[in-house]
């Protein structure tokens, strides 16, 4: 049996002083590989499992590398003084961290052993057994919920949402704490009925008390160019503050504590 600390995973970034992805100051470990292909995805380099070349700031870099739990922990623990002072910890993001359950579980277990708060950001598109395996090690799930309509979901994310909805129910029922996060994408889910429907569904889930609206932004655009891929959102402008505020009031009808941003 391999030592848990030698378990390897495929990641593409470790970002320190992250302040919008769970409580306190956090280090985000970005996993590589995702089953969805959301048009607006701001981390397109996270989608494919294989390492790839991406041009960034005039330089071509290889995105994606394999790292052991021990290596990632060494990086994570550097910010221990800041986690302590802020009640922060570690967030696994991606990509879809639930697609690498061995690595995610070993990493989260190591974080737990170090006394760190753990969070995952997941879209829920993963086999149930993976989720069952990882979930007990997580203090907070940032649960992406993009749409309640399967056809719309398939058209914009490349997959239907039935399995996701199923997993969301499971996660909400079993996680210590779940916050629902809704990327608000013009033309996809930025109309009031859709937001109302998502918020209502979120409010119906056991244990969910909080919902975050994450307004669409174009910050992933350069990466698509750097990867030589077309940008699926074209020149749709970012969601305005006013629109985000209007939708916030709609979401608040559900009775959940809602806010804009993470």
């Amino acid at each position: 049996m391999t030592n848990e600390r030698d378990v390897k995973g495929r990641i593409f970034d470790i970002q320190r002083y992250s302040i919008h992805d769970g409580p306190g100051i956090r280090t985000i470990v970005f996993f590589k590989g995702c089953g969805l292909r959301c048009r607006w995805c701001c981390n397109p380099e996270s989608q494919r499992r294989d390492p790839e070349q991406m041009e960034r700031g005039g330089r071509v870099e290889t995105v994606g590398r394999d790292a052991t739990v021990a290596e990632v922990m060494a990086e994570i623990l550097r910010d221990l003084p800041y986690y302590k002072r802020s009640g922060g910890g570690v967030t696994l993001s991606g990509g879809e961290c639930m697609l690498q359950p061995d690595f995610a579980a070993a990493l989260l277990a190591a974080c737990r052993a170090a006394g760190l708060h753990t969070a995952v950001e997941t879209a829920g598109f993963a086999p149930r057994e993976n989720i069952e395996r990882v979930l007990p090690l997580v203090d907070l799930v940032l649960m992406d919920l993009k749409h309640t309509d399967p056809d719309k979901h398939r058209a914009w994310c490349g997959q239907p949402n039935d399995r996701i909805i199923d997993n969301v129910r499971y996660i909400a029922a079993h996680a210590r704490e779940t916050v629902v996060r809704v990327p608000v994408i013009p033309g996809f889910n930025d109309d009031e009925p859709t937001v109302r429907s998502i918020a209502r569904f979120a409010a119906s889930l056991p244990g969910v008390r909080e919902l975050h609206l994450l307004p669409y932004h174009r910050l992933g655009y350069d990466k698509y160019i750097g990867l030589g891929r077309p940008y699926g959102m074209g020149d749709v402008p970012p969601l305005s503050q006013e629109r985000a505020r209007a939708l916030l009031s709609v979401a608040e009808e559900s009775g959940l504590a809602c806010r804009i941003g993470g």
Binding site: Q15, H20, D21, F30, C42, R56, E121, L219, Y221, D222
Partner: peptide, 20 residues
């Protein structure tokens, strides 16, 4: 810092910096 997003400000093109 932007939620769930990985990048450095100065590697962004100008118009995206404007967005930020």
């Amino acid at each position: 810092r932007v939620a769930g997003y990985s990048a450095l400000f100065t590697t962004l093109s100008r118009s995206l910096q404007d967005d930020i």
